[in-house]
């Protein structure tokens, strides 16, 4: 019984560590200028995924190729709107690491709500925490005993 309690405590502590520990897996910031030309048309961005490092100065030149499109960056709460033939520029410092959705902010047609892209800033720590938690859960289920589950010999 004591062994089981200790095992659960260790697993719980590991889960807390994975979920909340302030890991620093981000690349060294370099303040590099990153300039992207992003074409928006047919309910998609091209390129659809933008990779930068934390601290980079990002400039997105949004070019609408068919109708008016917008680009909103989740997590940064920034947006820009471009009309066909009139590109617009969004500049910001990528000071928040993680993966953020880019969404069209102007109704552009039927599939508008699903017009998305991604901004990836450094390492996606949330994803790694999620993977870690799932693997810990897998380990726990395979090796530990819990109420209602058969005992592992």
């Amino acid at each position: 019984m004591k062994r089981i309690v200790v095992s659960w405590a260790v697993l719980g502590a590991a889960a807390l560590l994975v979920a909340f520990a302030p890991f620093n897996l981000q690349p060294v910031t370099s303040n590099v200028e990153r300039i992207f030309r992003v074409e928006a048309g047919d309910f998609a961005y091209s390129p659809a995924v933008l990779h930068v490092n934390p601290g980079d100065n990002v400039t997105i030149k949004l070019v609408a190729t068919d109708v008016v499109h917008g680009l909103y960056v989740d997590g940064y709460d920034l947006s820009v709107i471009a009309e066909p033939g009139q590109p617009a520029v969004l500049s910001f410092t990528a000071d928040r690491p993680g993966t953020f959705r880019l969404r069209c902010s102007v109704t552009c047609g039927a599939l508008h709500p699903f017009m998305t892209g991604k901004l990836k800033v450094g390492t996606n720590l949330l994803l790694w925490r999620g993977i870690g938690l799932a693997l810990l859960a897998f380990l726990g289920i395979l090796t530990l005993r819990s109420p209602g589950l058969p005992i592992v010999h």
């Binding site: 309910f43 998609a44 961005y45 659809a48 699903f114 998305t116």
Partner: peptide
Amino acid sequence: VLLGPWGALKLAAY
């Protein structure tokens, strides 16, 4: 299809 960044897939489904 709907939430990914692949426009071709969205257009195919549409």
